[in-house]
Design a protein around this nucleic acid. Structure first.
Length: 406
RNA sequence: GGAGAGAUUCCCGAGUGGUCAAAGGGGGCAGACUGUAAAUCUGUUGGCUAAGCCUUCGAAGGUUCAAAUCCUUCUCUCUCCA
């Protein structure tokens, strides 16, 4: 087995491959050009997008050539795979803006060099396609009968599938063909929900070019309790630090289920496989801390990871660095007059409404300076502040904020 | 184009004139137990100047003492036929 491929398998990346021996032989012979596609459907990548890019880096480290394909064209259509209903149609401007943001995030992660790792955008060849020509050249190779047997469509046959989405597969196949023609791209990697689309591309390349291309898919990452990976109560775990702070990002990994630690270390860090296994077998809480630190460092840099770690220490085990805790600024005169607790919790961002704050207090989940505050009518006065005019508020055991008074 | 069905709170889904801020489940939040884990159990889950008041059942009008529920128009979705 080719060593790069073996690494992917060992680290749990491989779900399905169209022809693993063939691919291994090819990779032994020469550097392989491969691609990962992402449709820029939102303002930031989230962790679910990242699995293929971790694999991307492993592949590139082994000397292969990777293309990050932004779906500036396909996002105009919307991939029905794995969706139960049609995605809302985005405006071209939004898609292009998203594509810029995605591209920058990917660049940060894989460091494009223009030669071995570079981006492209499928709107370059999709945006101005001629419909008739496309149907004659490409459409004739697709059998509707066969397409209907694909799992992705079967499901949607129940709930409804529009023609626009039904065409998505042709476009993705066409992408693969274009990348083969332009760069000699022979391999497409992606999440397992892309299997049908990728295989369709392989067929198209075989029919038109008479060349074997390959598919390699990764498991859709789920937490071991069956939830979708990276979903938090606030939504997806985005990479953009303004959407999910490095501290919250760190906390997500710190709170992963025991059973996921080893798997996640292997997939979302670049520590050696042996080391990952060793860490996961050791003290489970230290392993989680290591996982959280490593992933945060990879995504947000070591400095942010250090800060998140220090903040977590300050919040949970004393010591650490309280400057690194999430904090808000509030006015001193409010405390001088007596800050109504409910307002205080809302202003500190620990409750969305006063009713929520009230519930928190009534249920004994509101902590002011480490003491349970159980009277919703009382105000928090200046005397609750520390000598350097600070105050720690907690909502429940885990959500907390450092109030800095000024 | 024709014939039907439907739109309910974060999601699924009950409710067909007052007892409805709206059953049940999921999810979320809090508490207990713990290890910042899982599982389990309990409570809670529109807002507010809070024993009261205000806003919510696709949208706009109407009937009524009273509407998520009835009527009219509109918008959207789905199914079947062409």
């Amino acid at each position: 087995m080719n060593p790069a491929l073996a690494t992917l398998i060992e680290r749990g990346f491989v779900q399905q491959c169209s022809n693993i021996e063939g691919l291994s032989d090819l990779m032994d012979k020469e550097p392989v050009t491969f691609y990962v596609g992402v449709d820029p459907t939102g303002p930031s990548l989230h962790i679910g997008h990242m699995v293929p890019f971790f694999a991307f880096r492993h592949m590139c480290n082994a000397g292969n050539i990777g293309i990050a394909l932004l779906g500036g064209g396909t996002a105009r259509i919307g991939d029905p795979s794995g969706k139960t209903e049609m995605r809302k149609i985005l405006s071209y401007e939004d898609i292009d803006a998203n594509a810029e943001l995605f591209s920058a995030q990917i660049d940060k992660f894989v460091s494009f060099d223009g030669k071995y790792r570079f981006p492209d955008n499928n709107k370059n060849w999709l945006a101005n396609l001629n419909y008739i020509e496309f149907l004659r050249d490409i459409g004739k190779h697709f059998s509707v009968n066969r397409m209907l047997t694909f799992e992705a469509y079967k499901q949607r046959l129940e709930t409804g599938l529009s023609f626009i989405e039904f065409n998505y597969q042709l476009l993705q196949s066409y992408d693969f063909l274009q990348l083969y023609k332009r760069y000699g791209c022979r391999l497409q990697i992606g999440g397992d929900d892309q299997w049908g689309n990728i295989v369709a591309g392989i067929d198209l390349i075989r029919r038109i070019e008479g060349v074997e291309a390959f598919a390699l898919t990764f498991p859709l990452v789920q937490t071991s309790d069956g939830k979708k990976m990276g979903k938090t109560e606030k939504g997806a775990l985005f990479l953009n630090p303004e959407m999910v702070s490095p501290y919250d990002f760190f906390q997500y990994w710190r709170n992963v289920t025991d059973a996921d630690v080893e798997r996640f270390l292997l997939m979302f860090t670049f520590l050696s496989a042996d080391e990952c296994r060793k860490i996961a077998k050791g003290n489970i809480n230290e392993a989680k801390e290591k996982l959280a630190y490593e992933v945060t460092a990879i995504i947000h840099g070591h400095e942010e990871a250090e800060k998140a770690l220090a903040g977590a220490k300050a919040a949970f085990s004393g010591g650490g660095d309280k400057n690194a805790m999430p904090s808000v600024k509030l006015q001193l005169d409010r405390f001088e007059k007596g800050y109504p607790v409910l307002d205080l919790f809302v202003d500190a961002g620990l409750a969305d409404s006063k009713s929520e704050a009230r519930r928190l207090v009534q249920q004994g989940g509101a902590y002011v300076a480490d003491k349970v505050w159980n009277d919703e009518k009382l105000s928090v006065g200046k005397d609750s502040l520390t000598e350097d005019n600070e105050l720690i508020l907690k909502a429940g055991k885990k959500r907390l904020v450092r109030v800095v008074v000024c």
